[in-house]
Amino acid sequence: TIEDAIKKLLKLAQKGQPYTFGDFTVTSEEEAKKLAKWLKKQL
């Protein structure tokens, strides 16, 4: 689910690992949080 993807994304971001989700490449926890907010709006 999208919720699971968001959780995984935040965990990876906390470890400092870049994470690619579709067109987004997230390289920081701050970016992960922005992406998570955006994804929730898409639901």
Rank of each mutant, 00 (worst) to 15 (best):
T1G: 05
T1R: 10
T1W: 14
I2W: 13
I2T: 02
I2M: 05
I2S: 01
I2Q: 02
E3P: 09
E3V: 14
D4Y: 09
D4G: 07
D4W: 14
D4T: 07
D4L: 10
D4S: 10
D4H: 07
A5T: 10
A5N: 02
A5K: 08
I6C: 14
I6R: 01
K7Y: 07
K7W: 11
K7F: 07
K7L: 12
K7M: 10
K7P: 00
K7D: 07
L9F: 11
L9G: 00
L9E: 00
L9K: 00
L10D: 01
L12W: 15
L12P: 01
A13F: 13
A13W: 14
Q14R: 07
Q14A: 14
Q14P: 04
Q14T: 09
Q14E: 09
K15H: 08
G16D: 08
Q17V: 15
Q17H: 11
Q17C: 15
Q17Y: 15
P18D: 05
Y19D: 03
Y19Q: 05
Y19K: 02
Y19S: 04
T20F: 13
T20V: 10
F21T: 02
F21N: 03
G22I: 13
G22L: 13
G22M: 14
G22F: 14
D23M: 15
D23T: 12
D23C: 15
D23V: 14
D23W: 15
D23P: 13
F24L: 13
F24Q: 03
V26W: 06
V26C: 15
V26Q: 02
V26T: 04
T27G: 05
T27E: 04
T27N: 08
S28R: 01
S28C: 14
S28T: 12
S28F: 13
E29D: 06
E29Y: 14
E29L: 14
E29K: 08
E29W: 14
E30H: 08
E30F: 12
E30W: 10
E31M: 09
E31Q: 12
A32F: 09
A32D: 01
A32Y: 05
A32S: 02
A32V: 06
K33R: 13
K33A: 08
K33G: 03
K34T: 05
K34C: 15
K34L: 09
L35R: 00
L35Y: 02
L35E: 00
A36G: 02
A36T: 04
A36S: 04
A36L: 14
K37F: 11
K37Q: 11
K37G: 05
K37M: 11
K37R: 12
K37C: 14
W38T: 01
W38D: 00
W38Y: 04
L39P: 00
L39F: 03
L39K: 00
L39Q: 00
L39D: 00
K41T: 06
K41I: 06
K41S: 09
K41M: 12
Q42W: 12
Q42V: 13
Q42P: 01
Q42D: 01
L43E: 03
L43V: 06
L43T: 02
L43W: 10
